Simulated assay, not measured.
Amino acid sequence: MPEAFSRHVFVYGTLRRGGRNDINRLRPAPEYVGMGEVQGVLYHFDWYPGLTLGGEEAVTVVGEVYRITPELEAVLDRIEQIVPGADSEYFKREVDVNVEARVISCLLYEINAARIRGRQAMGHGDWILFHTS
């Protein structure tokens, strides 16, 4: 029997439905909750995005919210290359996400600020629209 769902995750890039790392293809399967929004800035890195939260250039970044198990969280950590210390590609954050007229506390993978130096913001907050256009 799979572990019980323990938290929510907000996915905004390749983990979104139809993305290269679609969370719905991972196991144990997540449970879709709804579309969500946070304020931040998206950056383009080759075939994937990075998000920084807040800031003067912040826009509404859209994504999907899922309930996940600790086992699936470990899979996501590997995909997002979470390692101890300052060299991690992403850092795990717990943030409030607006999900269809309610607020849900979610895990979010925020890009390491050192990785965005010299990169230009995408200018909008929907990776799927950017990536498919």
Rank of each mutant, 00 (worst) to 15 (best):
M1R: 06
M1S: 13
P2H: 08
E3P: 04
E3A: 09
A4W: 05
A4Y: 08
A4D: 08
F5T: 08
F5P: 10
F5S: 07
S6L: 04
R7D: 04
H8A: 10
V9K: 01
V9I: 09
F10A: 04
F10N: 04
V11S: 03
Y12C: 00
G13R: 09
T14G: 03
L15E: 06
R16H: 02
R17P: 00
G18H: 06
G19F: 07
R20L: 01
R20E: 02
N21W: 02
D22Y: 02
D22T: 00
D22Q: 01
I23L: 05
I23K: 02
R25C: 05
R25Y: 09
L26V: 07
R27I: 10
R27T: 14
P28Q: 03
P30A: 08
E31F: 15
Y32Q: 06
V33E: 00
V38D: 00
V38L: 02
V38R: 02
G40I: 06
V41S: 05
L42N: 11
H44G: 11
F45C: 09
F45T: 12
D46I: 06
W47M: 08
W47Y: 15
W47D: 14
W47F: 15
W47E: 11
P49A: 03
T52C: 00
T52Q: 02
L53P: 04
L53I: 13
G54Q: 03
E56C: 08
E56H: 15
E56N: 15
E57K: 15
E57A: 14
A58Q: 12
V59D: 02
V59K: 14
V59S: 05
T60M: 02
T60V: 12
T60Q: 06
E64R: 15
E64L: 14
V65I: 11
Y66I: 13
R67H: 11
I68T: 13
T69R: 07
T69Y: 09
P70Y: 14
E71N: 15
L72Y: 14
E73P: 11
V75F: 12
V75K: 11
L76H: 08
R78E: 13
I79W: 10
Q81D: 14
Q81I: 08
G85C: 13
A86C: 04
A86P: 13
A86I: 12
A86T: 14
E89G: 00
R93K: 11
E94Y: 01
V95L: 01
V95H: 00
D96A: 14
V97K: 01
E100P: 06
R102H: 12
V103E: 01
V103S: 03
I104N: 00
S105C: 07
S105F: 05
S105Y: 02
C106V: 05
C106K: 01
C106R: 00
L107Y: 04
Y109W: 11
I111P: 03
N112F: 01
I116M: 04
R117W: 00
R119Q: 05
Q120W: 07
M122S: 07
G123Y: 11
G123N: 11
H124A: 12
H124V: 08
G125Q: 10
W127S: 05
H131P: 03
H131N: 15
S133P: 09
